[in-house]
């Protein structure tokens, strides 16, 4: 694609084509109605979901997430949140595939520590190898280590998703230079996952050249989640367009004013 054009600027993940570069989680909202309103406002097409034990209590007829976000309108991305070993993550995604009727696009994350939710990259790589062999299209959450990111691409992950900062922290992009290295080295989509706090963070990620941003808390924990969802959509679009346009060079000062130097009134 011509770097300076918005035409055909689609996000392609494992052969699937998306128009939105914003991916959103569905957790932490007050209710399903708010979840749906925020996600519609965000324009996101890919939504992450968690796999958990079904409530076998009395309220069997209460609505489920799937009623509010119909799987025919959104691309579901089942995750392995809460898994601390490769085995647990593999088990969860096998169940997810059965649950979603054979859907094989998944988000793999294997955590290493319950305080920070920092990824365990060794377990992540081990799980990714098995899942890819079993036919899953694996979008993988990882640290911002460029070597690990490269290895995840090499073993066949369809998107690599480094953190900007810790999950749920809202600390923004703490190491833009590592992200730049990952973006430059990899050929599969690079999606910043976790740490984005507000719209400018999302714009910065996209200006760096990320292919997309995945977020949950930044929208769900905002004072007005629906308003923030719209702000994030604009931040992503603004950052993407700025990246495609190519920014001007930075100069400490410039002897080149924007107004003509000729024709001054004397």
């Amino acid at each position: 694609m011509d770097k300076r054009d918005l035409k055909n600027d689609e996000l392609v993940i494992a052969g699937r084509i998306f128009n939105s570069r914003l991916l959103v989680g569905t957790g932490k909202y007050n209710d399903f109605k708010e979840t749906r309103s925020a996600i519609e406002k965000s324009g996101a097409e890919i939504v992450t979901v968690a796999i958990r034990r079904t409530n076998l209590g009395q309220n069997q007829q209460e609505p489920s997430l799937l009623d509010f976000l119909p799987p025919d309108k959104f691309t579901y991305l089942p995750n392995t949140a809460g898994c601390y070993s490769a085995d647990d993550a593999i088990r969860t995604l096998r169940l997810a595939r059965e649950l979603l009727g054979g859907h094989n696009l998944v988000k793999l994350e294997v955590l290493g520590d319950s305080d920070t939710l920092y990824p365990n990259v060794l377990e992540t790589i081990a799980a990714a190898k098995v899942l890819i062999k079993e036919g899953f299209d694996v979008m993988v959450y990882t640290s911002d280590d460029p070597i690990v990111a490269q290895q995840l691409e090499d073993i066949g992950c369809c998107a690599v998703m480094p953190l900007a900062s810790l999950i749920g922290s809202g600390m923004g992009i703490l190491n833009p230079h590592n992200l730049e290295i990952i973006i430059n080295k990899l050929t599969v989509p690079v999606i910043v996952d976790a740490g984005v706090g507000t719209a400018s963070d999302a714009a910065i990620a996209m200006e760096l050249g990320c292919d997309g941003v995945l977020m949950n808390t930044a929208i769900a924990a905002a004072g007005n989640p629906i308003l923030m969802a719209g702000a994030m959509r604009k931040g992503i679009e603004a950052g993407r367009e700025a990246f495609l346009a190519g920014r001007m060079n930075k100069k400490l000062y410039s002897a080149s004013p924007s107004s003509p130097t000729k024709g001054l009134i004397k």
């Binding site: 957790g27 932490k28 979901v49 968690a50 796999i51 958990r52 034990r53 489920s64 997430l65 059965e98």
Partner: peptide, 27 residues
């Protein structure tokens, strides 16, 4: 995992362990 097509084919017996899962909100 029990494929849906096998729901009437399998036997659950004393001491068996079952997990029944669904999709919930998550990031």
């Amino acid at each position: 995992i029990i494929p849906r097509s096998d729901f009437s084919e399998r036997d659950i017996r004393d001491g068996d362990m079952l997990e029944i899962v669904g999709a919930v909100g998550g990031g």
